[in-house]
Amino acid sequence: MDPSSTPYSKELQIACLAVQRASRLTKRVLDAVDKGALDKSDSSPVTIADFASQALIIAAIHRVFPHDDIVGEEDSKALRRDANLLKRTWELVSSTHLDDEESEKLLYSPCSKEEMLDLIDLGAQGTCSANNRSWVLDPVDGTATFIQGQQYAVCLALVENGRQKLAVLGCPNLNLETGRIHEDIVDREGGGQQIFAVAGHGAFMRPMGTHGLLDARKIDRKPQITEIKDLDFVDCAATTSSDIGMHSRLAAHLGAPWPHSTDLWSAQLRYIAIAVGGCNTLLKIPRKASYRSNIWDHAGGMLIAEETGCTISDLAGNPVDCGQGRTLAGCYGMIVAPASIHGKLLQGVKEIL
């Protein structure tokens, strides 16, 4: 199927181009770190990449869809306080373009520092509700691993009335030569991969470059396993929000393989690991009963996992509602697994909790 023939084809084209351009921007920051132009021990490269990526994505989306809400992680307060940080961010935003003239014409860039700041703040002011249309973005998901030159993602999703309709994730360092995603096995020669999905029409993947959009291939759906022994977990040992000890306990309770085969810091990359990286299961049992995830850490990635054959629910088995603000307010924890075995995981969670 040609992804351009699916519903939301215009939204998909703009989103894919915007994410590719922002991904190129983040690669430029990493190149500056590698060449010693920016200090790796300083947090400013991450800050610059976050702000600049958010500004470019919102500029492109807001120009074409001015009535849509936009939910972004960042606001401009730090830039308004720090003239040097503002200058460096503006230099990056104003000089990052796609090399293909026709593709770049479809996008928009801010014309001044003040416009850039206002665009960033559009993201800080946005929210998702049960009756609006909202773009959700995380300009750099995985900031800690980004600055180390490891895996991270540039994320954009379209949510309508609380339901994900479109997802585009740019993974600039994604390298699948081993069939698995690993923090330290990165694409150093190219631009990584872009994974995208339209609800009800499957998920696709294409290499990212510096020009226009390259051809995409459809991602195969996950095998529908029924045996616990075939579970293959992706997780994060360093996580501060999830109780990985409980994850281990659930695996032991079920008789499932453990420890997890793939460890990734970026929450969004864990969905990509399920879609294309050999894993098939993700569990999130929060450390605190009050914990709720930010929507930008999951919107988009969830849709890609669903479009490759997974069922996603909270720990009580309820569908995830993306229409309750800037967090997944009604969602306590998460189970992501092939539809055929999701019920067994859900039952196991209820037993150990």
Rank of each mutant, 00 (worst) to 15 (best):
N175H: 11
G300V: 12
N175M: 12
K35L: 13
R249Q: 10
R81Y: 01
D69Q: 09
M205W: 00
P45L: 00
A329D: 14
S293P: 00
C16F: 00
D314G: 05
I312K: 04
D263P: 06
G190L: 10
A157T: 07
L106M: 11
M246E: 14
N84G: 09
T26K: 01
N84H: 09
A203Q: 10
L17T: 08
L269C: 13
A256T: 11
V93H: 03
E91C: 09
E115F: 04
T26Y: 03
A157V: 09
I274W: 05
D69N: 14
K350N: 07
G333V: 07
R63K: 09
D68V: 14
A52R: 02
G333K: 02
A78F: 01
N161V: 08
K40M: 08
L98I: 11
I341S: 04
V186T: 14
D187I: 11
V320E: 04
M334D: 00
R163I: 14
E114F: 02
A237I: 08
H62Q: 13
K229M: 00
T6V: 08
C310S: 15
V349Q: 01
L137H: 03
W90M: 05
R21Q: 11
L117W: 04
P259C: 07
K27E: 12
G330Q: 03
F204A: 04
A252Q: 12
T143P: 07
A167E: 02
H182T: 08
R217V: 14
R81D: 10
H342I: 13
S94G: 01
A273M: 07
I352N: 04
A37S: 14
L315T: 04
S4I: 14
L56F: 02
R270W: 06
L353V: 11
N132F: 13
V336K: 02
N84T: 15
H342S: 06
V93S: 05
T145N: 11
V186F: 03
K350D: 09
P207F: 04
I219Q: 01
H182G: 09
R133H: 08
I285D: 03
L269D: 00
G323E: 07
L17D: 02
K218W: 06
V276N: 04
V320G: 00
L98H: 06
D50G: 13
L12Q: 02
L250A: 06
L174S: 06
A167L: 03
